[in-house]
Simulated scan of single mutants.
Amino acid sequence: MALTRGATEALQILIAGYNRLRRADVVLYADLDYDSAQYAMAMLKARRGVTVKSFAIPEPTTRASVLDTYRKVLDETPTARLLLLTHLSHRTGLVLPVRDIAAMARSRGVDVILDAAHSWGQLPLDIADLDVDFAGFNLHKWIGAPVGLGFLYIRKGRLADIDVHMGDQDWSAHDIRSRIHTGTLNFAAALTVPAALDLHEAIGVPAKRARLTHLRNYWVERVAHIPSVHILTPNDPLMHAGISSFRIKDKTGQKDTAAIVARLRDEFKVLTVRRGGLAAGECIRVCPAIYTTEPELDRLVAALSAVAAS
């Protein structure tokens, strides 16, 4: 592991530095993957001369449909070499069955770079159990460290498959610190990491997940009766944590979703986030924190009822 300025930087380094690609290879990513990671994957066409292929996660989403989608894409792309995989989507909150997808990829000679920006801290996470060789993590989202901290992970024995970063000579090529060179790290922020981890462990992942799942289910169950509100994230407890997204029927364009987000903020004092990039249309993300209260979610429910009726 090596400290970075966040999961975005970690993923960009892993993707850009992955050096096992040849011109006949294909790299794969889905519509739910993070924008900046998609950009880095697309850049590989110019940098490595590969073909870049994207695909959509089907809606409505089930575990079976997700596995079928990845299986189909991998079977249809025998020259695939690299797959970007997101554990917990920043767009919809969907949790993917990473271990099963990674096993599919590995059996076909495809390496996985895992985006764990949102999953670590919301979900029980053992990188060895997920069986991926490369991953990017955040420390500033669900762990509680200051903004601008994350880390990259490279499994022992795979370091040589990621290029030394920007010709770094401060560290040996056999040292993971040579894979990230950004100048002076915000060491004051980095010094807070042990305290953030202590608090995270004191609360415990089971308690965090239970709290976030309760808050998610609290508002989702109370808007489920509204016909025009479509919840994108499945109710399967293995496929969500605290984040979920919704659409209002016939209001899936950027202008519509931006207007809904603005109204929720300005009229009802509810903060949500517009998310684009999905094949089926834009959505609006709801992301409770562990300290969010039920009365605050009641305000969200009332706001969605009013927005859906207008």
Rank of each mutant, 00 (worst) to 15 (best):
Val286Ala: 00
Leu21Gly: 08
Leu94Arg: 04
Leu152Pro: 08
Ile226Trp: 02
Ala103Ser: 13
Leu85His: 03
Ile243Cys: 07
Pro78Asp: 06
Tyr153Val: 08
Ala306Gly: 09
Thr8Phe: 01
Gly148Arg: 10
Ala80Ile: 03
Val27Pro: 11
Thr4Ser: 12
Phe246Gly: 00
Lys255Leu: 15
Val193Tyr: 02
Glu201Lys: 13
Lys249Ala: 15
Ala117Glu: 10
Ala37Cys: 05
Ile13Gln: 09
His214Met: 14
Gly253Ala: 14
Ala103Val: 10
Phe55Val: 03
Leu278Glu: 05
Leu300Trp: 08
Ala117Cys: 11
Val270Arg: 01
Val223Asp: 01
Gly167Thr: 01
Ala279His: 12
Phe246Met: 00
Leu278Trp: 00
Arg20Pro: 02
Arg216Gly: 01
Ala306Met: 11
Gly121Lys: 11
Lys72Gln: 13
Ala279Phe: 11
Ala80Asp: 06
Thr8Asn: 13
Leu215Met: 06
Ile248Gly: 08
Gly157Pro: 12
Ile154Met: 13
Ile143Thr: 10
Ala46Phe: 11
Gly17Thr: 10
Leu3Met: 11
Asp256Tyr: 08
Arg99Phe: 05
Asp111Tyr: 06
Asp266Tyr: 09
Ala210Gln: 14
Lys45Tyr: 04
His118Lys: 01
Thr184Asp: 12
Arg22Ser: 13
Gly17Tyr: 09
Gly136Ile: 09
Trp171Phe: 15
Ala30Met: 04
Leu21Val: 06
Arg209Asp: 03
Leu232Met: 07
Val164Pro: 08
Leu125Phe: 15
Thr4Gln: 04
Leu199Thr: 13
Asp133Glu: 15
Ala10Cys: 05
Ser178Thr: 09
Ala42Pro: 01
Pro60Lys: 08
Ala309Gln: 14
Met43His: 13
Leu215Asp: 05
Asp129Gly: 08
Ile290His: 07
Glu9Asp: 12
Ala102Asp: 11
Leu82Ala: 02
Thr8Asp: 15
